[in-house]
Amino acid sequence: MKIVVLVKFVPDATAARAFGADHTTDRVGVDGLLSELDEYAVEQALQVIEAAGEGEITYVTMGPENAGAALRKALSMGGDQAVHVLDDALHGTDALGTSLVLAKVLEKLEYDLVVAGMASTDGGMSVVPVMLAERLGLPAATFASTLSVADGKATIRRDGDLASETVEVTLPALVSVTDQTGEARYPSFKGIMAAKKKPVTTYTLADLGVAPDQVGLGGAATEVVEVTARPPRQAGVKVNDEGDGGVKLAEFLASQKFI
C-alpha cells in the first residue's frame, strides 16, 4: 500500500496574519504550521498503513522554504518521505495551478491512494483535491468522516445534513477527509528525532516540466481584486430588562434571523 498525503503550510491562525501588496497571503514573514485540517489526513493515512500492516507514506507540499516545517511535522507523526515543490515562480498560484503542479508530482510517484484534508485553514476552498483527481483521472471520494481500505477499494462515509452516504471507490483513488475522522496523534519524541533523517526531495517547476507562466499570479485563472480587513467588532446591544426582557430578546433574535 503506497499513500500520498497532500499537506499545506499555512499561517498560524493564532498569530498576526498579513497580506502582501499583490493581495496574496504573506507566507514568508509570518509564523506558520501544518494546516490543522491536514493533520487528519496524515492520521488517516497512518491508520490505513497500520491496519494494512505494511506500506509507505509520501507527503507532498508546495510552498516557500519554510513550508518544509509542515513536511517535518507530518514526518514526525509517521510516514516515510516527502516532496517539496519549491520555486519562486509559484508565488500567487491559484487552486487550478496548484492542482496542475501536484498532478505533475504525482506522475512521478507510485501510489494506491491519495489523501487530502477537507480544506486548507487559510484559503478554505476545498477544490484542490477534486481538481487533482480530475487531472489524474482518479475516482474521488470527498469529505469523508470515516475511511477504510480493503480489497483494492477505499470506503468512506460522507455525513450530509439530511443523510449519510457510504461511498466506495476502486484504487487508485483520491479521498479527502474531515475533522470528524478522529483526533490526530501527537508526534512522539522518537518520531520528532527520526523525522530529521527522513528524505525530503525538492522539485522546481523545471523538474516537473511546468512552465512558469502556467502558475503564479500571471497564470492564475482567478484574481483577488481587493482585500479589506474585517472591521473591528462593534459593541453588542444591551437589553435592559424592565419586565419585557424576554420579549426584547426574542425580537432581537428574530431580527437577526436566529429564530
Binding site: R72, K73, Y186, P187, F189, I192, M193, K196
Partner: peptide
C-alpha cells in the same frame, strides 16, 4: 528546532 517541537508537543 527539535527542542521547540518537543516542547510544543
Amino acid at each position: 528546532e527539535e527542542e521547540r517541537e518537543i516542547r510544543g508537543t
